[in-house]
């Protein structure tokens, strides 16, 4: 098992190097000069040129990438061009808001998604099932930023129950979390439903029913537990993709999180900061996927023997 985990982590290394190269290339080979953006339009050409020299922007592209990589291997990921702070300090000052947002949204998603999915499966083709499937369609078809605006319009501007912006307290996170959860909810409902439907048709469920197990016990203990495996994948994947997919929601709710930071950094051609944040998100996503795989082995003992054989 440990060997498997280590292998997965080692396999991430080339992908991460690839990502850093890709982002480095995108940032450097496209028009726009970071030195000019930092000094503003009114700065003289000499000043811009001096700053470029100082930042090492005049070297060959590959030399610069190699220097960056050399620093990164030694633990120096560079400083943000704008704030002059080491990129990971900047990153970690922004990360908590995004993490809270993703976490809150996941909780909402699970609390609503699994029960609704189970009920739709148990009462397949009933009115509840049809309504929940249709709302799932509606939710996937709704752009998150529009739902966010609608929630602000109703609950912040008209009813005044929740603030529309900020990250100061729990209450600030309510609307953004709902918005983020809504987009992911549909996939969870549908996955829970289809997974439950598959399990309900198994022989052991019929056996349990035949020996007189109550419906509650049948659903909660016999079916749900066995249907949970694919559901957990979806939850894990959704949580991971939330970490990298909050840009638009953060900007709707004016939250200073990872997403808004990344957008500003891309616009200002702040290469070290952009690489750091994209690589960070990518690592978070693959660690999350690994965690889901490990979790599997605890839920399904059959898989455990499979891994230990490897």
């Amino acid at each position: 098992m440990l060997k498997y985990i280590l292998k997965r982590i080692v396999m991430m290394v080339p992908v991460i190097i690839g990502i850093s190269f890709l982002i480095f290339a995108i940032m450097n080979l496209t028009p726009g000069d970071p030195a000019r953006l930092m000094l503003g339009e009114s700065a003289s050409n000499e000043d811009v040129e001096a700053l470029r020299e100082e930042m090492g922007l005049n070297d060959n592209f590959f030399v610069r990438y190699f220097n960056y990589l050399k620093g990164a291997v030694q633990g120096d990921f560079g400083v943000s061009y704008r704030s002059k702070v080491p990129v990971f300090n900047e990153l970690f000052s922004r990360f908590p808001s995004t993490l809270k947002l993703a976490f809150g949204a996941t909780v909402i998603m699970v609390v609503i998604g699994i029960p609704v999915g189970v009920i739709s499966a148990v009462k397949q083709y009933s009115i509840i099932d049809n309504i929940s499937l249709f709302s799932a369609f509606l939710l996937t078809s709704m752009p998150a930023f529009w739902l966010g605006l609608m929630l602000i319009l109703i609950f912040a501007l008209h009813l005044g129950w929740f603030p529309a912006t900020g990250v100061d307290g729990f209450i600030n996170f309510v609307l953004p979390c709902i918005t983020l959860a809504a987009a992911m909810l549909a996939s969870l409902i549908r996955m829970t439903r289809s997974s439950m439907l598959e399990v309900i048709r198994q022989d052991y469920i019929r056996t349990a029913k035949a020996k007189g197990a109550g419906e509650r016990r049948l659903i909660m203990k016999h079916s749900l537990r066995n249907a949970l495996l694919p559901v957990i994948t979806i939850i894990g994947m959704n949580f991971a993709s939330m970490l990298g997919g909050t840009m638009i929601i953060e900007s709707v709710f004016a939250m200073p999180g990872l997403g808004t930071m990344t957008i500003t950094a891309v616009r200002m051609k702040d290469t070290p900061l952009v690489i750091a944040s994209v690589v960070f998100v990518a690592i978070a996503i693959s660690l999350m996927n690994l965690l889901v795989d490990i979790l599997y082995t605890y839920i399904d003992p059959r898989l455990r023997t499979q891994y230990s054989k490897r």
Partner: peptide
């Protein structure tokens, strides 16, 4: 490598650049 970057993040990076 491309897939490891969330799609929206990727699109924003390219179009902003």
């Amino acid at each position: 490598v491309f897939l490891a970057i969330p799609q929206m993040l990727m699109a924003i990076s390219i179009v902003a650049a």
